[in-house]
C-alpha cells in the first residue's frame, strides 16, 4: 500500500494540517518510506491472536457519582478559559461555525 498525492492531501485534511501543494511530493515520499518499512508486519502470522487492548490487566476503576472539587470538578470557569486565545464572558470564542 502506498500513498498517492490525493491520499496525502486527504490525510492532511483529516488531521487538519494545512499543506502546500509543493510539499506533497516530499511528504508522500517520507510517508511512503515509513509505511514501506512498516509493511514487514504483514509477514507475522496473527491467526487467532487477540489484539492488545490494554497493557494493564485489572478491572476498570470507577469513580462514585459525586461532584468533585479541584481539577476534576466544576465551578472554575475562569480556569477553564484562562489560557484561551479568545474568550468573552467565560465563553470560548471561535470563528463562526456553520451548521
Amino acid at each position: 500500500m502506498s500513498l498517492d498525492d490525493a491520499t496525502v492531501k486527504k490525510v492532511a485534511n483529516l488531521a487538519r494540517i494545512a499543506i502546500r501543494d509543493e510539499d506533497v511530493p516530499h511528504l508522500k515520499e517520507e510517508l511512503n518510506g515509513i509505511l514501506g518499512w512498516i509493511e514487514q508486519l504483514q509477514e507475522v502470522d496473527i491467526e487467532g491472536v487477540e489484539a492488545m487492548t490494554s497493557v494493564v490487566e485489572t478491572d476498570i476503576p470507577m469513580r462514585t457519582d459525586i461532584t468533585a472539587d479541584g481539577p476534576t470538578g466544576g465551578g472554575q470557569p475562569e480556569n477553564i478559559v484562562a489560557n484561551a486565545p479568545k474568550t468573552e464572558d467565560h465563553f470560548f470564542v471561535v470563528p463562526k461555525v456553520v451548521e
Binding site: T67, A68, P71, G73
Partner: peptide, 23 residues
C-alpha cells in the same frame, strides 16, 4: 450527579463553562 468521566456537575442551566472540569 456528575459527568461520565469527571466529577463536574451534570446539571442543566449553569453559567458558561461553570460545570466544566479540566478533564
Amino acid at each position: 450527579n456528575s459527568k461520565l468521566f469527571s466529577g463536574a456537575p451534570a446539571t442543566y442551566g449553569a453559567g458558561p463553562n461553570e460545570n466544566v472540569s479540566l478533564v
